[in-house]
Structures are given as structure tokens and as C-alpha cells.
Nucleic acid binder design. Structure first.
Lengths: 234, 234
DNA sequence: CTAAGCCATTTTGTATACAAATTGTATGAT
DNA sequence: ATCATACAATTTGTATACAAAATGGCTTAG
């Protein structure tokens, strides 16, 4: 593939998305136009256009005369997130089960294989990206332009939250999550919208419970400095 | 106010949004960069950036090497729309009732006054914009960054659909809609989340029923060329 | 020592010029 | 007559140069 400026712009878009999702650049980080344009071999004009596109997707935020920053992950975010996520994701999986094309189901299975491989590999960022890709694919299946923008926004922060709360330890949730993915695939393949929607809500319940434990560990059973116990049943 | 280039850019953003919402530029219309840059006194660089921002908001769609078009309103759109709209809007009004600030409620009342004035005025585009503004304000009240992008996308197409289906005749639905707005304000002011959510769903049921009548008039009672009867009860 | 204001530096925004890709048209071969 | 191909014209994408705004540090008055 030739290394034209158009290629480098696409490279930049993909690279910055990955960096944001994996928190290689943390929320709120300043994005310097000159620095980025030098790193990716682009002039500022196409770079600024790319930043606008990323802003539209929710990766970055633009402030007039003050440049671009990685989207914040504020203190109200978690609450907002778990309010919206089950509803949106339930609807998405419901539609995915209804509208999925055979070719899309094949791709979803491949994405799931990649996710399990990433779990085995142990690289946290690779896990988050593979998981993100799996869910993004269900979003494509749903094929509803009105749900897509919010769903994609949710996926961005889900990846980042995962990096924050799941990042530094080995738990069994990832495997539970992978099992839920398999169940989702089965429900989608069977065209079972109700099951798919229920699985979506279970999936978020798992995340929510895990994160609630992290943010507010059980004061009765938990001692300072002790590792946070993993979730065995919901 | 001085007429600097920054001002003209903001002018362009506002003007194009209004044109899309009112179908002054129809769905699918080609947006020529040179023509627009001349009309608004901007060079192509800031104009292209503005188009990216509008793409992120859902007003236009960008195709590589093929420029910008006004977002399509395809044949699957209506179905997608009425699948997502009640859910999203119900959630938005529920949150609005929970989180609304007094100052926001005042603004909402003003927006509602403007909407009733637009109804009296009879200008269809003015109605659509006033209605859009009212609903956008409820979106602000909800203050949930994960619902906002989809909600805004819905509002865009709601305005355009309204222009298509409500555009050319005088019905009583507008007044019913205005009454529903008043009920929404009351529910929000009372902090009654359940009522607000229910009102949201009623509001869409009204739209859906009206549009269903337009697209597929009752074959038993309807004769060719006869005006389509208005909706008296749901 | 503090604080306010001014100037230099840095960063963001815009305009123009140039390069690349796409589209439409005309010409010629089958 | 139809299709393919080449070429011109249009349109999109990028690079560089310039203008405007914001930031930071300095001086100086209180």
C-alpha cells in the first residue's frame, strides 16, 4: 500500500481511536495539533479535519480557540453510563437478532475468537479493543441509524472504563463476559430477540456490579489493602 | 457585532442546520464547497471543518472524494425512527423531570410560548424550528451525554419528517402537540418522571398515527383525492 | 510582597495555492 | 451503434503562509 497523505490521515484516525479506547491518551489530555501533525506526517489542515470527525464520534471534545482534548470521563459519567447502557444495548441486541445477515454473524464469530485469544494473551489493551470490536459489530447488525451514535459513544467509554477498573488484575469476569458473548451469538443466530435483549442487560449487570465493588467495596467484608473479591454470582 | 470570519462560520453552521431541518435543502442534496464558501464569505478550509462538525451531528453525510450531502431520509428511516424514538425520548423526558434546573424550566416555557406563536403564525418552517427548539431543550435538561447524540439525531429527522407530512395542510395535531408540551412542562416542573415518560410516548404515538395515516390511508373510508382525515382520538 | 498590565511566545483559525482524484465528454475501434 | 479509452474539466484533498487569539512571563505600581 502506498504511503500517501490520505493513508496517513486514515492511520491517524485509527491510531487516535485506539489510543483513546485504551487510555494510552487519558481523558482530558490536551491534543497538540503541531505535535500530532509531525508524528503522523500530515499538515495541520487534514489533521484538524480528522479531529472534527473524532469529535463527532465522541472521542475528543473541541473548545473554540482552545483546541482539542480527549473526552472527559467525569464524576457523573458512571451514573449516566449505567442509566443509558442497558436500555440502548438491549435495544441494539434486540434489533441485531432481528436483522443480522449471515455474513455478519460469521464476522461476529471471528471477532469473538479474537476476543478469546486476547483474553488468553493477557494484554489489557488488546482485550479492550477486541471486546470493543465485538460489540461494535452488534451495533452494525442492528442497523438503526438512530441508535448507532449513542451506542458508539457508550462503547468508547465502556472500553475506557474497562481499562480503568479491570486493568490491573486477573479476574474471572472476562471469561464470564466471553461466555455471554457466545450466548449472544447463539441468540442472534436463532433470531431470538427477547433472549438477546436479556443477555445484553445481564452483560451490563456484570459490569455494573464489578465496578460498584471497585468504587464502593463492601465495608463489612473488606479490609484496607486487601484485593477486591471477584464476583461469583449475581 | 463585527463580521469576522469566525462569526461567518457560526452563521454558516446555524444557517445550514436550519435549512436541513426545514428541508430548504432536501435530503440527499449535494453540498458544493465552493458555492457555499462564496455564499457565506468563507474560504474552503473553515467551511470543510464546519461540514465535518455537521456530519458529526448528523445533518450531513461525508463520502471520501465525493463531498458532502444532506443526510438521507431513506425508505427504512420511518421504521427505524419509530422504533427508537419512543424509547429514547421516554428516557430523555424521564431524566429531564429528574434533573431539570429552575432556569431551564423557565427557558422551556419561553420556548413553548414561541412554539404557540409559530402555530398561530402558520409558517410551517417556523413551526418545525420552534418545535425542534422545545424538544432540544428537554434534551439539555436530561443532561446525559450518552442519550444526547441519538436524541439530537432523532430531532433532526423529526423536524424533516414533520415538514414532509404535516407541511401542506392545517390540522388539529399541532394544537394537540402544543397541549402535550404543556403537560410535559407540568410533569417536569413537578419532578414526575413517570408522567413525563408517559407523555413522551403519547407524543410519538400522535406523530406515528398521523404519519401512518398519510403513508397508508385507511382503504375502507378513504377515496382517491379526498383529503386525509385528521386524528381525533388515539 | 502582591497584583495588575503589557509584551513576547505559543497556539489556534483562516486564506490561498497546489496536488490528486473523480466525472463527463469526445474520439475511435469493434 | 455500442463500448472502451483517453483526455479535459470539475471537484475534493493537502500543504504552506499568514492572521488572530490565548497563554505565560516580565515589569512596575501599590
Amino acid at each position: 500500500m502506498v504511503d500517501t497523505a490520505r493513508t496517513r490521515k486514515a492511520t491517524f484516525l485509527g491510531a487516535l481511536r485506539a489510543r483513546v479506547l485504551t487510555q494510552a491518551v487519558p481523558p482530558g489530555a490536551d491534543l497538540d495539533e503541531v505535535m500530532l501533525s509531525e508524528e503522523f506526517g500530515l499538515s495541520r489542515t487534514p489533521l484538524r479535519e480528522a479531529l472534527r470527525e473524532l469529535a463527532g464520534e465522541g472521542y475528543v471534545e473541541l473548545t473554540p480557540n482552545r483546541g482539542a482534548r480527549v473526552s472527559e470521563l467525569g464524576h457523573t459519567t458512571l451514573r449516566d453510563f449505567f442509566l443509558a447502557a442497558p436500555m440502548i444495548y438491549g435495544a441494539v441486541l434486540r434489533l441485531a437478532a432481528t436483522h443480522a445477515q449471515p455474513s455478519q454473524i460469521s464476522e461476529l464469530k471471528l471477532a469473538q475468537q479474537a476476543f478469546r485469544a486476547a483474553l488468553a494473551g493477557g494484554d489489557v489493551a488488546a482485550r479492550a479493543l477486541a471486546n470493543n470490536r465485538f460489540h461494535a459489530m452488534t451495533g452494525d447488525m442492528a442497523a438503526n441509524i438512530y441508535l448507532r451514535p449513542s451506542f458508539n459513544r457508550l462503547l468508547i467509554d465502556h472500553a475506557r472504563i474497562s481499562m480503568t477498573f479491570y486493568g490491573d488484575d486477573q479476574h474471572e469476569e472476562p471469561n464470564q463476559a466471553a461466555d455471554q458473548h457466545d450466548a449472544m451469538i447463539a441468540a442472534i443466530e436463532a433470531g431470538d430477540a427477547d433472549s438477546a435483549a436479556a443477555l445484553a442487560e445481564d452483560h451490563w449487570a456484570l459490569s455494573r456490579h464489578r465496578i460498584a465493588q471497585f468504587v464502593m467495596p463492601d465495608p463489612l467484608s473488606q479490609r484496607l489493602g486487601e484485593p477486591i473479591p471477584s464476583v461469583r454470582s449475581l
